[in-house]
Computed example of a mutant assay.
Amino acid sequence: MATTKRHSTHPGFHYHIDPEATSHDLMNEATEWLQYARSLTRLLADFIHEADTLDCQRVAHGMEAIGALMHMGVQCTAQAHARMCWEKGMDR
């Protein structure tokens, strides 16, 4: 009988964004997180292409890491957007 593992939709870590960071700083940070995710994706793809056999556990861990990095990029982008809207509202 096959068993499946349940995964939550949120990563098991929390990254606290600096409350003093500007929206520009947050967009730069989001870009960094997404670049890390892209690099890890390329590394994992190369690993899969070159492997004679696949270790599904390692592939799954790599994919989870990519998801976590992308999650951080999205969170930073969302925070930057919220701060830009807040700043725009304060100017009015």
Rank of each mutant, 00 (worst) to 15 (best):
M1L: 09
A2F: 13
T3C: 02
T3D: 09
T4V: 12
T4C: 06
T4W: 02
S8K: 05
S8Q: 07
T9A: 09
P11Q: 09
F13T: 12
I17S: 06
D18W: 05
E20P: 00
E20L: 07
A21G: 06
A21Y: 02
T22K: 10
H24F: 02
H24K: 03
D25F: 05
D25I: 06
L26A: 08
M27G: 00
T31R: 13
E32W: 05
W33A: 14
L34Y: 06
Q35W: 04
Q35H: 07
A37Q: 04
S39K: 08
L40R: 04
T41G: 12
R42A: 15
L44V: 12
A45S: 14
F47K: 11
I48H: 00
I48Y: 01
H49G: 00
E50S: 13
E50W: 03
E50D: 14
A51N: 08
T53V: 12
L54D: 07
L54C: 11
L54V: 15
Q57I: 13
V59S: 01
V59T: 10
V59I: 15
A60C: 10
G62P: 00
G62Q: 01
M63K: 10
E64S: 08
A65I: 01
A65L: 03
G67F: 01
L69Q: 07
L69W: 04
M70L: 06
M70D: 01
H71A: 08
M72I: 11
G73T: 06
V74E: 10
C76R: 03
T77R: 07
A78F: 00
A78I: 02
A78V: 04
Q79Y: 05
A80S: 05
A80L: 02
A80W: 01
H81D: 03
A82N: 02
R83K: 15
C85M: 14
C85F: 10
W86A: 15
G89H: 04
G89E: 10
M90P: 00
D91G: 03
R92Q: 14
